[in-house]
Design a protein around this nucleic acid. Structure first.
Lengths: 341, 341
DNA sequence: CTGAAAGCGCTAACAT
DNA sequence: ATGTTAGCGCTTTCAG
C-alpha cells in the first residue's frame, strides 16, 4: 500500500542516467569522452540530459576514486609582500589553464605554520606543493614528512630534494655590487635578511665574493641583518649612521629594505645618489614609484610561477622533471644609483 | 595452495584498525572524540596505532561523506593589486584558525573567468565563495547560478543577494572631497574607475554629492574613467592637462591612480601639493612611500577579510548572518594634500 | 556497445 | 562498548 521508501530524487550522475535512460557508467563514459565507443544516439541523449540538469561531476568523488586531485598548495611567507604577487599570479594563471586550483598559504617563515599547512594540504590530497621564497636553514620539520604521491617544487633555494625554479641569487647581488663599485662606491653597507634564510645565505655569498673580487675591505660593521621590511632597512641604516660607520653605497638584499635605507639616509641629511648610492634586489613595482626611483636587480617572478606549474605538470605526467630551472636576471638602473642620470 | 588475493597492505583507517585490533568505526570514533563512550583501553590502543602509522584522515573522503568541505574560494580581480593583500591575509589567517583552506582565484573582473571559477569551486564543493573588490553591473553570469549549499559573501558592493562586508564607498569619497575643498580646491579632477564597476558607481555618487553640497561646478570634463592603474591615472591626468582643463585638486578613486596623477602633474611642471592637491582612496602601503606621500582614505582591509570568514562561520553554523558589516574609515592626511605640512 | 558490481576512505544508522 | 552495513558520487574492471 505505502511506498517502502519515499524514493528521494536522484542526484548527480544518477539523475542524468535516469533521465537519459542509461546507466551511470554510460553517463560517465560519455561525459569524459575518450573511452570505448558509444552509439551516437545515446551519446546525444546523455549530453542533452546532462545539460538540462546542469550536471557537473563532483570533483571530490572523482578525486577519491582516481586517487588524485587537481589542486596544488602554494606556500609563501606573506602574500602581502610584493615579491610574491607576480609569482602567485603566474602560478595561478598557469594552474587555471591546466584546470588546477591553487590553495594559498601564508607561513610567515615559521616552521610550525609551514608544517601544519603541509599536513592540511596532504590531508586534502593536493597533487603538489610549491614552496616559494626560499627555505630556511633547519627544514627538519619537512625532511621527515611522508610525501607519498605529493609532488614538491621550490621557488628559490631549498633544503628539500626537489626540482626548483630560481635565479642565481649570489649572482644577482654580485651584479649589483659590481654596479655600485662602478659608481664609485668603496664602502658598501650590506642590508641582509635573517641568517637562517637560505636565500639570505646565497645573497650574502654574492656580496662577499664581489667585495673580495674588487679588493674592498670586508668590514663586519657594514653587514646588518633584518626581516626584509622597510622598517628594518630604515633602522639598520639609521643604526649604522648613528654609530658613525662610514659608507657610500648600500646593497640591500630586497627592495623594501632599500627603500627604508633611502629614508634613513635622507633623514640623516645625506643625498641619494649624490652621497650614497643605493641598489635593491627583486625589482618589485614600488621600486619605480618611490623617489629617487630605485635601481634593482630584476628577474621574471611571473615566469617563476608559470615554470613551477610546468614542472608540476611534468611530474604529474610521469616525466623526469627538470631538476633546476634557472632564469636570467639584469640590473634595472634608475636614479638611486646613477649620479649621471 | 595459492592465496586467492595477494592481500595488499591496508591503508588509511583500516590499517589503524587492524593494528589496534578493532573496527574502522572504532578508529573513527576515537579519533574524532565526541561520540559514544569508548573504553580507555581501546582508546589508547587506537591512539597508539594511529600515531605509529602517522595516520591522518583523508579529507576528501570525509568531505564526500559529510557533504561539505572546509574550503572556501576567494575571488579577487588581481592578487597583484595591493588593495587585496591585507584582505587576503585577513581571510586566510581567520580561515586557518578555523581549519579552513583558501583557494585563490584571479578574475581580472572578467565575467567569463569569474563564472568559470565559480563552477570549478562549486565542483570542488567549497563551503563558501568570497567575492572581493566589488561586483560589476551585469552579474547575470552569477545570479542564475545554482548555489545549492554554497555560502556567498561579498567584500564591497555586489548585485548578489548575500551578506556583505564593506565600507560606505560614497562616504569615503565625500570625506576626501571635503578635505580637498578645505585645502582650497574648487575644481577637482575626478579619476574614476570603469562605469560598470559597482564600487565606481558608489564612489562617483560620493564625488557628485560632495561637489554639489559645496556648490562647486560639476564639469563633465573633470571626470575621467580608468582601470585603477598607475598608468591610467597618469594618462588621464595628462590628457586633462593637455586639453587645458583647469583643476587645482585631484580626487582619485584609488591610490595607484592618484600616484599616476601626481606623476603627470609633476611632469607637467606643476607642484603637488602647492599647485594641485591630490587625494587617493584605500590607503595601500605604497601611498606612504611615494613622494610626496599620498593622502588617502583609510579603512581596515585586513579586518574585511577576517569579517568575511566570521560571516561564513555564522552561516555554516546555521545562524542568521549579519547582512551588512560596515566598517569605519578615516582620512590619512599626508603631504600630497597638505599645504601646511 | 552497454550495464552490473566493486570500491576509493570515510561516517552514521542500526544492531548487539 | 563495539561491530556490521550501507552509502556519499564517481570510475573501473568484468561480463555480457
Amino acid at each position: 500500500m505505502t511506498d517502502p521508501a519515499p524514493e528521494a530524487p536522484a542526484r548527480g550522475a544518477k539523475a542524468v542516467a535516469q533521465r537519459a535512460g542509461v546507466s551511470v557508467t554510460t553517463v560517465s563514459r560519455v561525459l569524459r569522452g575518450q573511452d570505448v565507443a558509444i552509439s551516437e544516439a545515446t551519446k546525444q541523449r546523455v549530453l542533452a540530459a546532462a545539460k538540462e540538469l546542469r550536471y557537473r561531476p563532483n570533483s571530490l568523488a572523482v578525486a577519491l576514486r582516481k586517487g588524485h586531485t587537481r589542486a596544488i598548495g602554494l606556500l609563501v611567507p606573506d602574500i602581502a609582500d610584493a615579491y610574491f604577487h607576480q609569482l602567485a599570479r603566474g602560478l595561478e594563471d598557469a594552474a587555471q589553464e591546466a584546470g588546477y586550483t591553487v590553495v594559498l598559504c601564508n607561513t610567515d617563515r615559521q616552521p610550525a605554520k609551514e608544517r601544519s599547512y603541509v599536513e592540511l594540504l596532504a590531508d586534502q590530497q593536493v597533487e603538489a606543493i610549491v614552496f616559494a621564497g626560499g627555505g630556511i636553514d633547519e627544514d627538519a620539520h619537512l625532511t621527515d614528512f611522508p610525501w607519498h604521491g605529493i609532488h614538491v617544487v621550490a621557488i628559490g633555494p631549498h633544503r628539500l630534494d626537489c626540482p626548483s625554479v630560481r635565479v642565481d641569487d649570489a649572482g644577482t647581488i654580485e651584479l649589483a655590487v659590481d654596479h655600485l663599485v662602478e659608481q664609485g662606491s668603496t664602502r658598501i653597507l650590506c642590508l641582509a635578511g635573517r641568517p637562517s634564510w637560505l636565500i639570505n645565505e646565497e645573497r650574502l655569498r654574492g656580496y662577499r665574493q664581489a667585495v673580495e673580487r674588487h679588493g674592498l675591505e670586508l668590514d663586519p660593521r657594514l653587514v646588518r641583518t633584518g626581516d626584509f621590511s622597510v622598517e628594518a632597512g630604515c633602522s639598520s641604516t639609521r643604526a649604522a649612521l648613528d654609530e658613525g660607520v662610514e659608507f657610500d653605497g648600500v646593497m640591500a638584499f630586497n627592495d623594501y629594505t632599500a627603500i627604508g635605507a633611502m629614508q634613513a639616509v635622507t633623514e640623516h641629511g645625506r643625498r641619494v645618489p649624490e652621497d650614497v648610492v643605493v641598489v635593491g634586489c627583486d625589482d618589485i613595482p614600488v621600486s619605480s614609484l618611490v623617489s629617487p626611483r630605485l635601481t634593482s636587480v630584476s628577474f621574471p617572478q611571473y615566469e617563476f610561477g608559470r615554470a613551477a606549474m610546468e614542472v608540476i605538470l611534468e611530474m604529474a605526467t610521469g616525466k623526469v622533471a627538470t631538476p633546476v630551472r634557472q632564469f636570467a636576471y639584469h640590473l634595472e638602473v634608475r636614479e638611486s644609483s646613477s649620479r649621471r642620470l
